[in-house]
């Protein structure tokens, strides 16, 4: 085969180098953002033994803690903090609401334990009806902007309860409702030993 190609090479008219660099930087940037988003979503829930980041719970009107209308976790050092996520539309929450209130009242006098009710993705009129129905007296407030629930669990379901010790370390996670007052006390009491 001695056929010679009789075509003349086409002049090179590629994309300018600066444009190529720009496109690659943009593409890598987007991939980086995507990776960061996926890592964030994959990031596990706050695990037992880790320090709980500080947050502030603004309480429903009518509720207060130490005369203030909001509670800051970092102000509750030296206390065991029981953080309960609930919602008025959540049926399982109803099974534990009375037990939580009873448990709270059993510790209220000691001043060593604080219960915080965090109302998750709820509407205030129904939330108020719920709190009245179960006569909840411990501090309760809405999870404004779902900021608190995102600290604990990005895929939060309700009810969920997190127990934080006196050093601000997460010691227990309860997914689903408690079945009895004794069950709640069995988690809190060991954290109060020696106090």
């Amino acid at each position: 085969m001695s056929q010679e190609p009789n075509t003349t090479p086409a002049p090179k008219r590629g994309v300018p180098l600066w444009a190529q660099i720009l496109v690659w930087i943009g593409l890598l940037g987007l991939l980086g953002l995507l990776a960061a988003g996926l890592l964030k979503a994959k990031n596990p829930i706050l695990s037992i033994g880790s320090s709980v980041p500080d947050f502030t719970l603004t309480l429903f009107s009518g509720y207060e803690y130490n005369g203030a209308s909001e509670v800051k976790l970092s102000d509750l050092s030296d206390k065991v903090v029981v953080i309960n996520f609930w919602a008025s539309w959540c049926q399982p929450c109803r099974t534990e609401a009375a037990d939580l209130e009873t448990a709270w009242r059993s510790y209220e006098e000691t001043g060593q334990v604080v219960f915080l009710g965090v109302d998750y993705v709820d509407t205030e009129p129904e939330a108020r009806e719920y709190m009245t129905e179960f006569n909840l007296s411990y501090p309760n407030g809405p999870d404004m902007g779902t900021r608190i629930s995102q600290i604990f669990n990005r895929n939060l379901g309700v009810p969920e309860t997190y127990v934080v010790d006196q050093q601000g370390v997460l010691r227990f996670i309860q997914i689903g409702p408690f079945q009895s007052v004794a069950e709640i006390q069995a988690i809190i009491d060991p954290l109060l030993v020696g106090r």
């Binding site: 919602a87 539309w89 993705v121 709820d122 509407t123 009129p125 779902t146």
Partner: peptide, 27 residues
């Protein structure tokens, strides 16, 4: 969109939470 029922617009979401949201909008 209700955060509990992701990817379901509030106007067609059948859950109690979404119903409460719609009633709140009405109010």
């Amino acid at each position: 969109y209700c955060p509990v029922c992701e990817n379901t617009p509030l106007d067609v979401c059948p859950t109690t939470a979404c119903h409460q949201w719609r009633e709140l909008i009405r109010q």
